[in-house]
Amino acid sequence: EITKEQRALIKAILDAYNRHQIPQDVTKKLLQEQYSAEENFLLLTEVATSQVQVLVEFTKNIPGFLSLDREDQIALLKGSAVEAMFLRSAQVLSKKMPSGYTEVLEERIRKSGMSEEFMTPMFNFYKSIGELHMTQDEQALLTTITILTPDRPYVKSHEAVERLQETMLDVLRKLCVLQHPQEPQYFARLLGRLTELRTLHHYHVEMLTSWKTN
C-alpha cells in the first residue's frame, strides 16, 4: 500500500517533471526539414543544452535533493545528465507523434556525425523504453532514481544519496505492483533499463573521446 506521504512524493515529482519540459520553440525547430550539416549540429547542441537546464530545474524540485551537500548536487547532476537525457529522448521518441515527425527526428540524429556502432545501441534503447509503455509518474520516478545514483564520481556523502534513492525505489516498486498487477516482473524490467543506460553512458564517453582525438 502506498502511504499518504508517498502519494505526496509522487505528486511533487510528477508535477516537477511535467512542468519542466524542453521549450516548444526549441522542439519546433527540430521538426523543420531543411537544414545543413552545420545547422543540424548547432541545433542538436542547443537541444542538449536545453535538456540539461530542464534536468536541473526538475532535479531542484525533487524533495530532499537541495538538502544534499552542494558539491554532491553538482556531482550527481554531472554524473547523470547523459543518462537522464537518453531517458527523456527515449520517452519523446516513443510518444505517438503526427506521422513523419519520428522520421525527421531520427534523420537528424543519424546525420549528427556520431558513429553507427553507437547509434545502434542507442536506437535499441529507445525502442526498449517504448515497449515498456511507462506511465508519466513511472518515467518521472525512474529519472529521479537515475539522478540519485550514489556511486557517481566525486560524490562524498554516499549514504545520504543512497537513503534518498532507496526512498524513491520503494515508491516506484509499490507503484509498479499497483499499476501492473498482471506483470510481476515490471519493476525488475524498469531497473534493467538503468543497467542499459549505464552501458549507453559508457559508449557515450568512448565516442566523445574518439571525437576529441580525431
Binding site: 543544452t49 540539461v52 537546464q53 536541473v56 531542484k60 553538482i74
Partner: peptide, 21 residues
C-alpha cells in the same frame, strides 16, 4: 554536454537560477 567543463558550467548556472546570461 559530454564536455565535462561545459556540462558543469551549465549545471552550476542552472542550479543558481541564472538561465539567461
Amino acid at each position: 554536454p559530454g564536455n565535462s567543463i561545459g556540462l558543469e558550467a551549465i549545471i552550476r548556472k542552472a542550479l543558481m537560477g541564472k538561465y539567461d546570461d
